[in-house]
């Protein structure tokens, strides 16, 4: 499969299915690559996959999720490849496992939502940042359980995705208020807890998410409000940023921005929230404390 087809397939998935996350789309694309691959060795297959990954990273979608999802998939390929001798058998096994993997990933959101909705209590006030599909589903589920709660959403410049989140919530009948990004401090004393999604979870247990999450986390810590992160487990990555500057640039800016403009004058898309500010992570592996994330990653990669 060549680069153009990869890109087309990838973008098609994202355009068509609103609910699918970028990471899952990337993995599906990689599965396609395997299916259509004419390679005869594992090494060649891997090179094809890596090329495909590069193509996807060069689209303007957030790189964080693509990276972690693909890394996991590659690991899975490596593990699968050890078992059999014949390459076609190997490929068949990979495809089977791949389907299982994707099926699990699709179920992941459901598990997270089940865990998280228990924490949304009757009469609570929730603050969330920008638009996250998992958080949206969790709030929907809680609403279906007949809990009455109120949601505050930040507009989250520059793409104003918070507005869309607010619209979607209001369509469900959940009372929702749109607030300025700068009003986070003001609203903090009224809310009971904060729930955000994540684009990636790093080795330290911290998260990489839409810019503005870090500010919200610091404010929450100061006001002693719990900060919950809802994320699927395939978003775990082996990165360990030491600070905001230490995040790789491909995470912070899209590829086109990186090529064309002076990075010092452009706003980053994501920021890094250290684990000290996160209370709990709700994942399909269960409810984890930030220190448990590293445990999981070690188990996987070592």
């Amino acid at each position: 499969m060549d680069g153009a087809k990869v890109r087309e397939f990838f973008c098609k998935i994202i355009r068509e299915d609103e609910d699918v996350s970028v990471g899952v789309a990337a993995i599906r694309t990689l599965m396609e690559i395997i299916k259509h691959s004419k390679s005869e060795t594992v090494q060649e297959l891997e090179t094809n996959l890596k090329d495909g990954i590069n193509v996807m990273k060069n689209t303007d979608y957030p790189v964080t999720a693509i990276n972690s999802g693909c890394e996991l998939f590659l690991r899975f390929i490596t593990l699968a490849a050890l078992d059999t001798r014949c390459f076609s058998d190997c490929k068949k096994i990979m495809l089977d496992r791949g389907h299982l993997f994707i099926k699990k990933l699709d179920e992941a959101r459901g598990k997270i939502v089940k865990l998280a909705s228990k924490f949304i209590e009757d009469g609570s006030k929730v603050l969330t940042h920008s638009r996250s599909r998992v958080v949206l589903q969790a709030l929907r589920k809680a609403h279906k359980q007949n809990k009455r709660f109120e949601v505050f959403v930040t507009i989250s410049a520059p793409d104003n995705s918070g507005k869309q989140m607010c619209k979607e919530l209001q369509a469900e009948g959940i009372p929702c208020t749109l607030i300025l990004d700068s009003a986070v401090g003001y609203i903090m004393e009224q809310v009971h807890f904060i729930m955000v999604g994540a684009e990636g979870v790093v080795e330290s247990g911290g998260i990489v998410n839409k810019v503005g999450s870090y500010t919200m986390a610091v404010c929450a810590k100061e006001m002693k409000k719990p900060f919950y992160v809802l994320t699927e487990s395939f978003k775990f990555s082996r990165l360990f940023p030491l600070g905001q500057q230490d995040l790789p640039e491909e995470y912070k800016y899209t590829s086109s921005v990186r090529k064309n403009s002076d990075l010092k004058k452009v706003h980053p898309l994501v920021d890094y929230t250290p684990p000290a500010y996160i209370t709990l992570l709700f994942t399909d592996l269960g409810i984890l404390t930030p220190s448990a994330v590293s445990d999981e990653l070690i188990k996987l990669y070592l």
Partner: peptide
């Protein structure tokens, strides 16, 4: 079990 590792290596 429930871990990333298991997620990746499980068979039906």
């Amino acid at each position: 079990g429930q871990s990333l590792h298991e997620l990746v290596t499980s068979t039906p």
